[in-house]
Each structure stands twice: as C-alpha cells, then as structure tokens.
C-alpha cells in the first residue's frame, strides 16, 4: 500500500526537480536585464523558483504528516487491488504507444484493442478481432478520407500502398 503522505512527498520531490531543471534551463539564456528588456530566461527562471519553493513547502508538509501517523498515514493513496487495476489499464497504454511508434497507429490500436479484450477481459477471440479490425478501418476512413489528416503509419500501410 502507498500511504497518502508518501505519495505527496514523492510528487513534491518530483515537482521540485522539475523546478530545478527549469531554473537551470532558464539560466542558459540569462535571467537579468539587457538593453532590450528582461532577458529571455527571466520569466521561466522565476516560474521555476515558484515551482521549487512551493514544492519544498509541500514536501515539508508531507513529511510532518508522515511523522504524525494519526493524521495522514492512515489515508491510503493506493490500495493493492487499486494498484492492480491502475497498472492493468496503464501498462497496455504504454504498449499502445510503443507499438504505434514502431508499426503505426492503425496497427498499434488494433493490437492494443485485441490484447486488452482477449488477454485482459477474456472476450471471445472472434468478437475481439471484429472490434480490433473495425476500429482502425473506421478511423482510417474518418481521419484520412473525411478530414484528410495523415496519421502515423508503419510498414503495413507502406506495403498496402496507403
């Protein structure tokens, strides 16, 4: 189980790092005053400082709460069964992204739909195949023919000459 204060602390730390990265990146372009006004880095520099300081304060609050178990640590951020559901939904999306980048979005979505329906939700293969094939075909006609927008394509589309 992940306790609420642990999640708060983790998020605050992550955001503080983002703040530091912003500050470092902004400093490359100067954060002071130039003859033509504030230098390009000035605005992001101060934004980075706000992110950093506010996140440090949030981290401190999370730590204080973590030290007083009665207050926050009772509160769960994610219970084990929820974690399973969340990962079971998010990891296939990661698969969708990777497959789409390698094989194009149409093939990626077909694999993703087939995978989630058959492997995860135990749908009959025939029904799942129908959904997994109909969706990209429908999407193709809607996107490329009706709206005339080009979609990310892979080797299959090249082979089909689409």
């Amino acid at each position: 189980m992940i306790a609420r204060w642990q999640a708060e602390l983790g998020m605050a730390a992550f955001l503080a790092v983002i703040g530091v990265i912003t500050i470092i990146g902004a400093r490359e372009y100067g954060v002071g005053w130039s003859p033509s006004g504030p230098e390009p880095g000035a605005f992001p520099f101060y934004m980075g400082i706000i992110v950093l300081l506010a996140s440090l304060a949030n981290a401190l609050r999370a730590l204080v709460a973590g030290l007083r178990p009665a207050l926050w640590s009772e509160q769960a951020f994610l219970k084990p069964e929820q974690m399973r559901l969340v990962l079971g939904f998010t990891l296939p999306i990661l698969g969708l992204v990777v497959a789409s980048l390698m094989l194009g979005l149409y093939v990626g979505m077909a694999l993703y739909l087939f995978g989630t329906l058959v492997l995860q939700n135990r749908y009959p293969v025939l029904k799942a195949s129908l959904i997994a094939l109909a969706t990209p075909v429908l999407a193709y006609f809607l996107i490329e023919r009706v709206f005339k927008v080009a979609m990310l394509k892979g080797p299959l589309e090249a082979w089909l000459g689409l």
């Binding site: 955001l15 902004a26 372009y29 390009p40 880095g41 992001p44 934004m47 980075g48 706000i50 992110v51």
Partner: peptide, 25 residues
C-alpha cells in the same frame, strides 16, 4: 501555485516569440 508556475514553465518551452532563443529545450 505549483500548477500555475508549472503551466507557465511548460508554455516557455521552445522558441521564444520575442528574442527567438530556444528556451528549455
């Protein structure tokens, strides 16, 4: 405050419309 400043930082990524410098890339 974090949300707002983070949004402004994300908006700053890329070409700066005034100076033309490529910020936070």
């Amino acid at each position: 405050a974090v949300s707002i400043a983070l949004g402004f930082s994300l908006a700053a990524v890329g070409m700066d419309s005034v100076s033309g410098s490529l910020r936070l890339t």
